[in-house]
Nucleic acid binder design. Structure first.
Length: 420
DNA sequence: TCTGGGGTCCTAGGACCC
DNA sequence: TCTGGGGTCCTAGGACCC
């Protein structure tokens, strides 16, 4: 048995935990640069605010309905996520953290427990310990647990837990589920399936295997089998290392000068190197890209990227920044208003399995020791306290975040204060 | 004025091997 | 009338997820 625990309107709920004033207001959280809506409270959903909608398009709806609007505060959400996951770990070790707001629990061992009651208990505990409301869906496969979770969420007056158990229940649930709402069916597959009269999850469950395999690949076939109650997606208890690492941002204001682009690209590279060191890996390839604002067709448009091959895989920012700036200079063209830049690492290998180069002149052990010290200092004093000069100080390109909430849980100076 | 930032997996096709 | 038959590795592109 799999249980899918999913936080309700996660980012919006995080804001509410520390700000009871917005408890009964519609709440939305915006993406970086205060661009698009990426989380909505139920009240905001009822107002017809869509996921991914650009904020400037719904300005009127927001002000007219007294909607509480927040800039994204990833530090806060990441920390709250950790609290939720740690709470779940108190109930079982068989947990797969699937995303920032979701986890699968394997409840197969709970032979003598009433699974439903136990899940209600889990839900209540998470709410009590973290303030975050969750929904739990239980079924015999991950995909069906996703379906069950949807039902648990839809039934607002219910317990927040739904157990998809009897065949009859399953059939009814699948009958009532549009094919595009299934986990693993995106826009393209939904279109294709509907063209072939597969409109509900039930119809997909009963579809022809050969056709599915041919049109939806092996992953689609697994999904269909899971709908039939045959588990094909195992629990992944340990998180595998990332195979690609990206750091990219849209700029708050467009950037034209190479100096400023260099600051941004150097900073992104340093972030990538941090992520790399965190999982004890090194990267073989580094790709740097820049582009103009595609939403301004009247502006001259330019986009380009450069893939750099590192002689020896590394996670050392000093070395990586050299490559990324070289790449940037090769693709930079004067006279364009750049809106976004990014750095992407691939060819990622464990740092214990580096293929050395015969002609390598670098003292890697020394560099690596120096970086360890920098990591420790920045860990204590705050990110970028020690940094490369090229990362700059004025950061004209930085994000727009006009409605940022405090880092209640991760910064002493931003603790919640209560006046009595 | 104004439109996010990450990830995964699979397949087809080309280059190569014997 | 009708090209041999296996393989591997790599990459680009397209689907999906949150």
């Amino acid at each position: 048995m799999f249980a899918l625990v999913d936080c309700n309107n996660f980012f919006a709920s995080c804001e509410r935990v520390f700000n009871p004033a917005v408890e009964n207001l519609p709440v939305v959280v915006l993406s970086n640069n205060d661009g698009c809506v990426i989380a909505r409270s139920n009240e905001a959903k009822l107002l017809g605010i869509k996921m991914g909608e650009p904020a400037f398009k719904i300005k009127e709806i927001l002000s007219k309905n007294n909607v509480a609007v927040f800039s994204t505060n990833y530090t806060l959400y990441g920390d709250m996520s950790e609290r939720v996951m740690n709470t779940l770990k108190c109930f079982t070790e068989n947990i797969e953290i699937y995303s920032i707001d979701e986890a699968f629990l394997d409840l197969s061992d709970m032979k003598y427990e009433d699974i439903y009651k136990y899940s209600v208990h889990i839900r209540n505990t998470v709410r009590k310990w973290t303030g975050i409301p969750v929904s739990i869906g239980i079924a015999s496969t991950k995909t069906l647990a996703k379906v069950a979770n949807k039902i648990a969420k839809k039934n607002r007056s219910g317990s927040g837990v739904y157990y998809l158990k009897e065949e009859k229940q399953i059939e009814e649930a699948l009958q009532n589920l549009d094919v595009e709402d299934i986990w693993g069916v995106g826009r393209q597959y939904a279109k294709l399936l509907k063209l072939n009269d597969i409109t509900t999850a039930l119809k997909l469950r009963n579809a022809n295997d050969t056709w599915i395999k041919k049109n939806l690949t092996i992953m689609g076939m697994k999904m269909v089998k899971e709908l039939r109650g045959i588990p094909c997606l195992p629990m992944e208890l340990v998180r595998p290392d990332k195979q690609g690492i990206m750091t990219s941002r849209s700029f708050g204001t467009p950037v034209e000068e190479l100096v400023q682009l260099k600051e941004a690209v150097a900073t992104f590279t340093v972030r990538c190197a941090e992520k790399l060191r965190k999982q004890h890996s090194c990267a073989h390839h580094l790709l740097v890209f820049i582009h103009t604002d595609r939403f301004k067709p009247s502006d001259p448009q330019y986009r380009n990227f450069k893939l750099m091959h590192l002689e020896v895989p590394t996670n050392n920012p000093l070395e990586m920044v050299k490559y990324s700036l070289q790449g940037l200079e090769l693709i930079y063209k004067k006279g364009y208003k750049y809106k976004k830049a990014g750095v992407y690492l691939s060819g990622i290998v464990p740092d214990s399995e580096i293929q050395a180069s015969l002609f390598d002149k670098m003292d890697r052990a020394r560099f690596s020791a120096a970086m360890k010290s920098v990591d420790i200092i920045n860990g204590i004093m705050g990110r970028d306290k020690v940094r490369l000069a090229v990362q700059g100080f004025d950061r004209k390109w930085k994000l727009r975040q006009e409605r940022l909430s405090p880092n209640y849980t991760s910064n002493w100076r931003e603790l919640l204060t209560i006046n009595i």
